[in-house]
Amino acid sequence: MDIVDKTTRSAMMSGIKHKNTRTEIIIRSGLHKLGFRYQLHRKDLPGKPDLVFPKHHALIFVNGCFWHAHGCHIFKWPSTRVEFWREKIGANKMRDERNIQTCIAIGWKVLVIWECALKGKTRRNLNEVIHTTANWLVYDSQSAEIKGREL
């Protein structure tokens, strides 16, 4: 049983942003301070990556742990409307995998930064995340992910 009525829950859920999130803005700001320039949410690329670095032929997706079913402490399956959420979140995961593989196939390297890297009990130091991302942009040729620390 939900603790709020259906109208309130609907208003709450529709207020959740899918771009320009706090985590995304923190990453953007840190990289910009280091001199990196990027494009935002390019519609011509699969999944509309949060950050696009044409110079480095790199894409960054900043994923919320709940919406993308990350296997960390932040993600918990909802206890109401279980079938709906399993279908919705499962479709998100499948779409993420498809988009990342398509981006790699067309020659982009992809970094996924998970919300738990900057939030919660497994968060990493912000400078560590920013500098790891900057080093990945400049030096790495492989796709990767940054997530929270192991407990």
Rank of each mutant, 00 (worst) to 15 (best):
residue 23 T to F: 00
residue 69 A to S: 11
residue 135 N to Y: 08
residue 143 S to D: 05
residue 88 K to H: 11
residue 52 V to A: 10
residue 141 S to K: 15
residue 46 P to K: 13
residue 26 I to W: 04
residue 45 L to A: 06
residue 115 E to G: 05
residue 28 R to P: 00
residue 64 G to A: 09
residue 17 K to A: 13
residue 128 E to T: 11
residue 101 Q to E: 13
residue 49 P to A: 10
residue 34 L to T: 01
residue 67 W to K: 05
residue 44 D to W: 10
residue 86 R to S: 12
residue 113 I to D: 01
residue 71 G to N: 15
residue 82 V to N: 04
residue 151 L to M: 10
residue 92 N to T: 04
residue 62 V to A: 09
residue 126 L to E: 14
residue 75 F to G: 01
residue 38 Y to S: 11
residue 25 I to V: 15
residue 106 I to E: 14
residue 92 N to F: 03
residue 82 V to C: 04
residue 57 H to Y: 08
residue 108 W to N: 03
residue 49 P to I: 12
residue 91 A to G: 10
residue 121 K to N: 08
residue 51 L to K: 03
residue 148 G to V: 12
residue 15 G to T: 12
residue 61 F to S: 07
residue 107 G to Y: 06
residue 127 N to P: 01
residue 6 K to L: 05
residue 8 T to E: 12
residue 53 F to A: 12
residue 69 A to P: 00
residue 12 M to R: 15
residue 102 T to D: 07
residue 145 E to N: 12
residue 151 L to A: 06
residue 79 S to H: 13
residue 3 I to A: 12
residue 104 I to P: 01
residue 123 R to L: 08
residue 80 T to L: 06
residue 44 D to R: 11
residue 49 P to F: 09
residue 109 K to M: 05
residue 140 D to A: 11
residue 130 I to D: 07
residue 70 H to G: 06
residue 11 A to C: 08
residue 69 A to E: 13
residue 3 I to Y: 11
residue 138 V to M: 13
residue 64 G to L: 09
residue 95 R to P: 04
residue 66 F to L: 04
residue 114 W to I: 04
residue 13 M to N: 08
residue 51 L to I: 13
residue 110 V to L: 03
residue 34 L to G: 01
residue 16 I to V: 14
residue 109 K to L: 05
residue 39 Q to E: 13
residue 1 M to E: 08
residue 33 K to S: 13
residue 139 Y to A: 06
residue 117 A to Q: 10
residue 79 S to R: 13
residue 94 M to I: 11
residue 30 G to E: 01
residue 32 H to G: 10
residue 105 A to N: 14
residue 38 Y to T: 05
residue 50 D to R: 03
residue 13 M to V: 02
residue 87 E to H: 10
residue 42 R to N: 04
residue 119 K to S: 02
residue 115 E to C: 01
residue 139 Y to T: 02
residue 42 R to T: 02
residue 29 S to H: 14
residue 98 R to H: 11
residue 60 I to K: 09
residue 68 H to K: 00
residue 142 Q to P: 00
residue 130 I to S: 06
residue 10 S to C: 04
residue 150 E to T: 14
residue 2 D to T: 14
residue 33 K to C: 06
residue 37 R to E: 03
residue 4 V to R: 15
residue 63 N to A: 03
residue 15 G to Y: 07
residue 124 R to F: 06
residue 134 A to H: 03
residue 149 R to K: 14
residue 142 Q to L: 12
residue 73 H to E: 12
residue 115 E to Q: 13
residue 6 K to S: 10
residue 43 K to D: 08
residue 103 C to I: 01
residue 90 G to R: 05
residue 61 F to H: 10
residue 71 G to A: 13
residue 40 L to M: 14
residue 80 T to A: 11
residue 149 R to A: 15
residue 89 I to Q: 01
residue 13 M to E: 01
residue 138 V to P: 04
residue 31 L to N: 08
residue 91 A to D: 12
residue 69 A to N: 11
residue 36 F to K: 00
residue 136 W to H: 08
residue 64 G to E: 09
residue 91 A to Y: 10
residue 39 Q to A: 08
residue 147 K to S: 13
residue 3 I to K: 14
residue 90 G to S: 05
residue 18 H to W: 10
residue 8 T to I: 14
residue 128 E to H: 09
residue 90 G to T: 00
